[in-house]
């Protein structure tokens, strides 16, 4: 397959679109950024792409809650187009605010018969910017291909995954909990600061039942270069940032 085309969908208040496009480019995709207005006017524009990304930021100012307005706009005009996009094999990635949008829009966890899930205020009650260690669970989503832990920064005030215990268990059993905050020994944790927001089950990222829709609170696009890592002056720069793998996995899955 030719170079996959990645659409970065920005709304008023989106602010991580430029570095997200850069990450897709480094990963071998052909990125393009469009204002959501252009796609709402003409939903068939989605047909030109194999990857859709909703990047981080404060879409519509987080007014009414993080991701709420963006999700309402998508559902209002694009609900069918998004389903079509997934059904023809397209990959959807939501980062931080984008993850909040996908949850609010019902695309994640996206399983019928489970209870409501949300991303809500961090346990500590404020915005938190720090680096986290994450354990990926490969096999379920093309975005994650191995189980080597990855370091990524988080930066959010509303990133705590909250649901009822039954729903969490259902999602875990279905393999949809594909990214968790882990402690130094590599185990999922609820404890601050390894878990920066108090997410249940250490949930940092989820995929839908097909694995094609993936959302995560940490920012893979902010660790695409070895010098992004906070400790490179101690241990020497590695070869590439951990976050780039997520983008490259998706591109390689589409090319395969």
């Amino acid at each position: 397959m030719a170079t996959p085309r990645a659409l970065i969908l920005r709304a008023p208040g989106t602010n991580s679109d430029e570095e997200t496009a850069l990450a897709w480019q480094l990963a071998g995709a052909d990125p393009e950024t469009l204002h959501v207005g252009r796609v709402l006017e003409l939903p068939s524009r989605l047909d030109d792409y194999q990857i859709l990304t909703i990047p981080g930021g404060f879409s519509y100012g987080d007014d009414l809650g993080a991701g709420v307005v963006f999700a309402a706009r998508l559902n209002q005009a694009l609900g069918d187009a998004l389903t079509r996009f997934r059904d023809r094999g397209g990959l959807i990635l939501g980062i931080c605010n984008g993850f909040q949008v996908l949850v609010r829009a019902g695309l994640l966890p996206g399983r019928s018969g489970v209870g409501n899930a949300t991303l809500t205020n961090n346990d500590r009650g404020r915005y938190e910017s720090r680096w986290s260690r994450l354990a990926p669970k490969p096999g379920r989503t093309p975005f994650l291909a191995d189980d080597t832990p990855i370091d990524l920064p988080v930066a959010h005030g509303e990133g705590k995954f909250l649901t009822d215990p039954q729903t969490l268990q259902t999602l875990q059993e279905a393999g949809q909990v594909v990214l968790t905050y882990v402690d130094e020994s590599g185990h999922p944790t609820d404890a601050f600061p390894a878990n920066p927001n108090g997410s249940m089950g250490g949930v940092a990222g989820l995929c839908d039942p097909t694995g094609q829709i993936f959302g995560l609170m940490p920012h893979p696009e902010r660790n695409i270069d070895p010098l992004h890592h906070p400790k490179w002056t101690r241990r020497g720069p590695g070869t590439e940032g951990d976050g780039l793998r997520i983008f490259r996995n998706a591109v390689e899955a589409l090319k395969a």
């Binding site: 915005y127 910017s129 720090r130 930066a155 992004h228 906070p230």
Partner: peptide, 22 residues
């Protein structure tokens, strides 16, 4: 510092907080 998103735009090389435990 931790209330500020100091990593946005992915330009950061040396952060405001550094060291073994950042």
């Amino acid at each position: 510092v931790r209330q500020y998103d100091h990593e946005n735009q992915a330009r950061s090389v040396i952060k405001a907080l550094v060291g073994n435990e950042s």
